[in-house]
Simulated assay, not measured.
Amino acid sequence: MHLSYCTNVHAAEDLDGIIEQLDTYALPIRRRLDTDVLGLGLWLAAPAAAGLAESEEDRRRLRRELDARGLEVVTLNGFPYEAFQAPVVKLGVYYPDWTSRERLDYTLRLARILTDLMPDGATYGSVSSLPIAWRTPWDGSRATAAYGHLDELARGLARIEAETGRTVKVGFEPEPGCLIENTTQAAALLSGVDTNRLGVCLDLAHLACAWEEPVAALDRLKQAGVPVVKVQVSAALEADDPVAAADVLHAYVEPRFLHQTRSAGGEATDDLDAALAQKLPGPWRIHYHVPLHAEPAAPLASTVPVLREALRALRANSDCEHYDVETYTWGVLPEEQRPKDAAGLADGIAAELAFARDELSAAVTR
């Protein structure tokens, strides 16, 4: 099992900036955790990925820099294409989608790069990606284009394995508002792909926002023959009584990311401000990744109980090896919860990783 933290929380998008962030964040985090090796779920923006895919020397350089700091990479986050920490992202994160050759080319570049970054003992590498597309617009021609690209993706991954001897799998990440929002849709829409190489990246905050029961969700995927190739260990924001929590919830409204909001009764909006304006009936779960180890401001809660149940089910019934802590929202948290500097962010990520490590260990023994 490999535990890592996802570097899409950092803004660097070129090779020099990525190497600099290793010293600013990753190395201090490893030292805080007092561990010989720290896992990174590396995010490479499309321009950096293109450069690395073209340059064997740059790939060797990045591997040397990782090794020198005791850092390990078995998984890449290939969901955001670029500019993920821009002032405004919102719907832009879903483009280019899988109807576009740009998305296919980017993902295959990531897979090729990963074969040179993976440690020798890794069973496989993984790349997470968006769940095909945002739900609209969608029609037959877009579906034909998307599934044609998925077929090309599987063939491309097979070629990479033949050339390098390394296996890389791609996991599509169900997310509220997308074509694949939940495991029911994942089972239906991915059961016909090459499931030796393609599967699901199960984000535990998204699982909670879909109000899915973890055991049933995993069984649904298993029955459909769709493997979990990667897990994003994350927690969403929860409001049992949104009316009573309205003032606190307003502090989480921000311009960078979408915060899709879902009620237990099935009512939905694509952002938190719309849910507040429409006064959706509660309780709510909100697509807002909150720090795993720290409770949000009262009277809000997090979906850590769902996370715990999911980890127990995964450790008992799945052979997934990749667990990536993905809290990318540190910079947009309410001001009093936001890290004040790089050292504060490193402290927060280290605390999350320690929490996740303990929960994964407990999941084996429960």
Rank of each mutant, 00 (worst) to 15 (best):
Y5P: 01
H10N: 04
A12S: 15
E13I: 08
Q21D: 15
Y25E: 07
A26S: 02
L27S: 02
P28K: 09
R30H: 11
L38D: 02
L40K: 00
W43C: 02
A45R: 02
A50N: 09
D58F: 01
R63G: 01
E65D: 09
A68N: 05
A68P: 01
A68F: 01
G70V: 05
L76H: 10
F79C: 05
A83K: 09
A86Y: 00
P87D: 06
V89H: 01
V89Y: 04
V93G: 08
Y95I: 07
R103K: 15
L104C: 00
L104P: 01
R109C: 03
I113R: 02
D116Q: 12
P119W: 15
D120S: 14
D120Q: 12
S129V: 00
L130Q: 11
I132L: 15
P137M: 09
P137G: 02
S141H: 15
R142N: 03
A146M: 09
A146Y: 06
L150Q: 00
A158N: 04
I160P: 02
A162S: 13
G165V: 01
G165W: 03
K169Y: 00
G171Q: 03
F172M: 08
P176T: 09
C178A: 14
I180T: 05
I180R: 03
S191G: 05
S191T: 13
G199W: 01
C201P: 10
C201S: 14
L204W: 03
W211I: 03
E213V: 12
P214D: 14
V215T: 13
K222I: 03
G225M: 00
V226H: 09
V226L: 03
V229T: 10
V233I: 06
A239W: 09
D240R: 15
D241P: 09
P242Q: 14
P242R: 14
A244D: 08
D247N: 14
H259I: 04
T261H: 00
A268E: 09
W284L: 10
Y288S: 08
Y288F: 13
V290W: 06
H293S: 06
E295S: 08
A297Q: 15
S302Y: 02
S302K: 03
S302C: 08
V304D: 04
E309Y: 00
L311T: 08
A316H: 10
D319P: 07
C320R: 08
E321K: 15
Y323Q: 10
Y323M: 05
Y323D: 11
D324S: 08
V325R: 07
T327G: 07
P334G: 13
P334S: 13
P334N: 11
E336R: 15
L345V: 10
A346K: 06
S361A: 15
A362H: 05
